[in-house]
Design a binder for these strands. Sequence first.
DNA 1: GCATTCTTGCAACTGAGTTGCAAAGATGCT
DNA 2: AGCATCTTTGCAACTCAGTTGCAAGAATGC
Lengths: 143, 143
Amino acid sequence: MEHMNDEQTLRNAGIRITAVRLMIWKQIRHEMEGVFSLYDMEEALPTVDRSTLFRTLTILNDSHLLHNVDDGSGVQKYCVCHHDDTRHCMGHVHLTCRICHNTYCLTNTSIPQVPLPEGFQVEETEYIVKGICSRCAQKAAKQ
Amino acid sequence: MEHMNDEQTLRNAGIRITAVRLMIWKQIRHEMEGVFSLYDMEEALPTVDRSTLFRTLTILNDSHLLHNVDDGSGVQKYCVCHHDDTRHCMGHVHLTCRICHNTYCLTNTSIPQVPLPEGFQVEETEYIVKGICSRCAQKAAKQ
DNA sequence: GCATTCTTGCAACTGAGTTGCAAAGATGCT
DNA sequence: AGCATCTTTGCAACTCAGTTGCAAGAATGC
């Protein structure tokens, strides 16, 4: 699965192949690290229109090749789903840095359960830690 | 503290009293239940300009009379801080309903800790459960 | 090879939040 | 109270991210 070629991955997800989609997916898969935004994609692929990027990200999201990350910045972020089966990849903890605005996935830290009121139907859980990442903290300390 | 009058509450927080501010605070304190947005305030107080509401909410937030709630809807929400001291009211779990877009505070459910990487300076933690609230689930079941 | 369907880029729009500025209001000092 | 100073307010205009309508271009099915 990990080594499936990019075109096959899209096809398997039921996504029709086009030059633009393949370019977008390759960019995400091989060049973007961690969590990225629509704006990051615009920067990375300036020849592709924003609306196309948006629509393609939505398709990838719906096909569970990406998942939405809500880091509380007010900007929608995306992240490659790393999982080996078809289950939707469930929540892990996210760190988001107030200074550099990067968001990091703690892929190995799953979200602890809490008791919920009777009758609430859970669909998704977000656990976001906001603060200052170690890199930014170090920079700040030097000055 | 709970019974302090509204004017005194503002004054104690270091906020200058004006007719508009008092009206906003009374509305929040006595009419809004739970979590509300700027838009909710616009609806409730149509005579007050949006920018004034926004600036006043920001002041109340900075003075820890309100706190920001990030429910992942992309819309900033606010909630009265219920606490007896000057500590910033720390995170509790929020439920947010995909159907009615209401957000509920589980004020008694504090956010469980998770292990974090060395060097990350935590400032705030959000725990948001997204899904369908019992009221909306019941409505859906009837049909 | 042609008709049909899907994808793309452009432009224009929405919605929430935010800012500059002048008028209105509050405060401090005599 | 009268006046100068500082703060707050409403208006309009703007930013920023996301979203949509539509016509042109690309892919697909027979």
